[in-house]
Design a protein around this nucleic acid. Sequence first.
DNA 1: CGGTATTTTGATTTAGCTCAACAGACGTGG
DNA 2: CCACGTCTGTTGAGCTAAATCAAAATACCG
Lengths: 249, 249
Amino acid sequence: MSDKQEVPLNSPSMEGHHCTVGLRLEKLGMVQFFQGLTEQQLHSVNSKFTANHYERGVTIYRQGDPATMLRVVVVGSVKLVSHTMDGNDVLLDMLQPGEFFGNPMADSKHVYSETAETQTSACILSIRLSDFREVMNGYPSVAMSVLDITTDRLNESRQRIQHLSRLPVKKRIAHILVTLGNKFGEKHRLGLLIQLPLSRKDLADMAGTSAETTSRIMSQFQDEDLITSGRQWIAINNKPDLLRISAED
Amino acid sequence: MSDKQEVPLNSPSMEGHHCTVGLRLEKLGMVQFFQGLTEQQLHSVNSKFTANHYERGVTIYRQGDPATMLRVVVVGSVKLVSHTMDGNDVLLDMLQPGEFFGNPMADSKHVYSETAETQTSACILSIRLSDFREVMNGYPSVAMSVLDITTDRLNESRQRIQHLSRLPVKKRIAHILVTLGNKFGEKHRLGLLIQLPLSRKDLADMAGTSAETTSRIMSQFQDEDLITSGRQWIAINNKPDLLRISAED
DNA sequence: CGGTATTTTGATTTAGCTCAACAGACGTGG
DNA sequence: CCACGTCTGTTGAGCTAAATCAAAATACCG
């Protein structure tokens, strides 16, 4: 794999500041579904959250646990994984700061249908579902925003069903790379760098294929100068052509 | 295929009564998300809907059309299909009376991301999205119910991603049969009859496989007395074993 | 009864999986 | 700073599930 540079990722720095509700929620303030709220309102809602810091690779909750909390990523990133009985994983989603996870409408009978794990060290806010329900009742704009996001996620999810059903692995991976680039990409001398530790297996679990096949395809893309990649990182050099590959025919 | 009986499906009868808003919405009254409303409220909401009757196999809207309406199935069933560029189809969902379809949160820029087609003759209610937004604002319980349903659909959709990613075709089809049986099944001397015209290709488009492979697997299931099936219909004789097949290992 | 759409079945091909070995990269402790 | 062990990624070879291609058989429709 010729000349591989040092790891180019910035790890999300918690340096100095603690992961506290006050600091973080206000500062970033832009948790998707709290957009429309006033300073006042934000403050009252804010008080219902608890903040937690997690190291990289830590499990936040497990598939099958009672679904009691709704969570929001403040710093870092979180992946949602579903484990199959035969030991395979499916990577359902990767979340950025500002995004929520956990079933917002679960009642006491529900359990989480996936496992949530930090992908970098992270700061996560939690709110009890009963409290969140009150928030949605008190501020209908929050409920609408949650509905909006959930609808978008459903659409993404259905697109993925389409891809898994009808596209060959190469196109699926090309598409995933473009999507990740759009969501997590940052300009960098190496190209559009995906700011996340991302292994071949992660990619494979997103594409519904094996790590070996993923590796082969990534090597191909690398040979064609579409990407630059090393251990746990990927940069996109030619997004238009990747897009073309994912859609052509 | 030995002894094939006459087609055992009941086609949804529109006999006599027209497909009108008043008659249908009130009578069935149980459109999922209008549950909590009073007679009064139902009546006012009701007036914003338009009713339409469609023959079997008719396209209600097409993937890519501007998403202007939200629709509810009153009688009959509707399938949501996504067409791929290479002429393959993916069957995303099949809807029963009481279920809604069309993007509830679309704004003027959105287009439908799938095609909606009647699977039987059907009566469909439509409401303009701007009106539906008002309804949700006026009756927060409606918005909550829509969110609840959308969350459930997201979870189903993710389960399907799992299956497509990691299960062999036989297990996927077994699971789909069980699911269809639960949703559309009616007791019948032949077994749990799925009350829908359902071709091998439909099943294939749900399982992300080819019609030929689907046919082979259905023949196998038939040989093992798990199902009885003819042209466009399926009855389930042994749900427990089908479930076992879908989950075993 | 003839025509069309659906389903079945067979034969062949192939994309992608699995198994296996190896090679780089990273981290750690001496 | 180097040596070692452990992950992560690469590459090869063979195998298999499922696709594709092709044809016949069956069911439905007027």
